[in-house]
Design a protein around this nucleic acid. Structure first.
Lengths: 204, 204
DNA sequence: TTATTGGGCGTACAGTTGTACGCCAATTTA
DNA sequence: TAAATTGGCGTACAACTGTACGCCCAATAA
């Protein structure tokens, strides 16, 4: 890759990173202005256009990138689980770790999931769909669940996890522990309940 | 009440209604400007201050009002359930009805729950807490659940319902039916699972 | 070597925002 | 009746926004 393309990539990264860094509990992506991001990245406002058509395009890039990051980390966690131990417990712990090390990645997904741009909502939905689908297959395979029940169960699990993540963002470490315990209980409820419903169908 | 106070109340309502009416899938409260709301309400921008300190105060009013509306409607639904039939099914149906007749009330709660203002998040959390608490007591009383388990269970139920509501906002009627069915299944899973967990504790 | 490309910049402009200030007129109070 | 209160308005201003346009110059292509 030429010197030129390399420098371009570097600036592009600076923009993405600048945007991520400006996110916080008090600052959502949609509240960032093009000029702010450019300023933080150390380039002129008009230079922004050399990399993205508009802020929307930047945001979608961030969602995709964030979703990928999240999935990679969760996959690593699942590998850890295969070494033995409760899948649920280990997955929750992994999730909490991810949350703590990448709060802003999680923020943009969380916020734009119910945001005002249809494109954003669709992008986040796609990322979440990845999670549901992976989990659904996993449950089908290991618990012998009906495809339909597996799907509904996976949706419930992912919903509960994401939602807990949202609450966790505002908390301190101690409260997060309690939350994690509650979450584990809730996930177990769903798992047990799904099992019960399955038996009911089978014996009918 | 004097003529004066009456007129004031009327304008105040006009402001709140104007704000609610401007909400949509593409427009969140935080994206509304004071001037827009004033324009829609038919008053001068500066007159806004005769009624609210700033947009934040308007928003909090809307959250409180919206939460109240929601709770009242759900309570009516629960009364309907007492006449017989599945509590879960009837509650879900009620919820869907509420959603369809007051989408914007639901929107502001949903969006500001993960919004950028701590005050808003707290206000929404308070409203949701009402739901959880009511439901938790209900489950304790009718299913004889442990307070702690009842609480965790209620949290899960409310989370699932709210989340389904969020997805439903974007859908057409037919898809909403499917969603409602899934939701009912998920709620049953949690109920069954909670029961199972309770027995486990009791027989130990 | 010369010509082309393209990332970055500065200037410029029109639009929108929140809000300070002062006035008016009608209701309310004294 | 006279005085005080108050909801509503218009004007004004500084801050900020997105983005069109044209220039520069270093990397690349011919």
């Amino acid at each position: 890759m030429g010197v030129r393309a390399l420098q371009k990539e570097k600036t592009r990264r600076a923009l993405v990173d600048a945007a991520f860094n400006q996110l916080s509990a008090e600052r959502s992506f949609s509240s960032l202005s093009l000029r702010e991001v450019a300023r933080e990245a150390g380039i002129a406002p008009t230079s922004f256009y050399r990399h993205f058509k508009d802020m929307n395009e930047l945001g979608l890039t961030m969602v995709d990138e964030g979703g990928l990051t999240l999935r990679q980390m969760m996959r690593k966690g699942r590998q850890r689980a295969e070494a033995g131990g409760s899948v649920i417990r280990i997955s929750v712990d992994t999730f909490v770790e991810v949350l703590e090390s990448n709060p802003n990645v999680f923020r943009i997904l969380l916020h734009e999931r119910s945001g005002t741009s249809a494109a954003f909502r669709a992008a986040v939905a796609r990322e979440i769909e990845h999670f549901i689908s992976e989990l659904s297959h996993y449950t089908e395979a290991t618990a012998g669940r009906t495809p339909m029940l597996a799907r509904v169960q996976a949706e419930a699990l992912v919903t509960l996890v994401f939602n807990a993540g949202a609450s966790a963002l505002d908390m301190k470490r101690a409260d997060r522990k309690v939350l994690a315990d509650h979450l584990v209980l809730q996930l177990r409820m769903v798992a047990k309940g799904a099992e019960a419903l399955q038996h009911k169908v089978e014996t009918k």
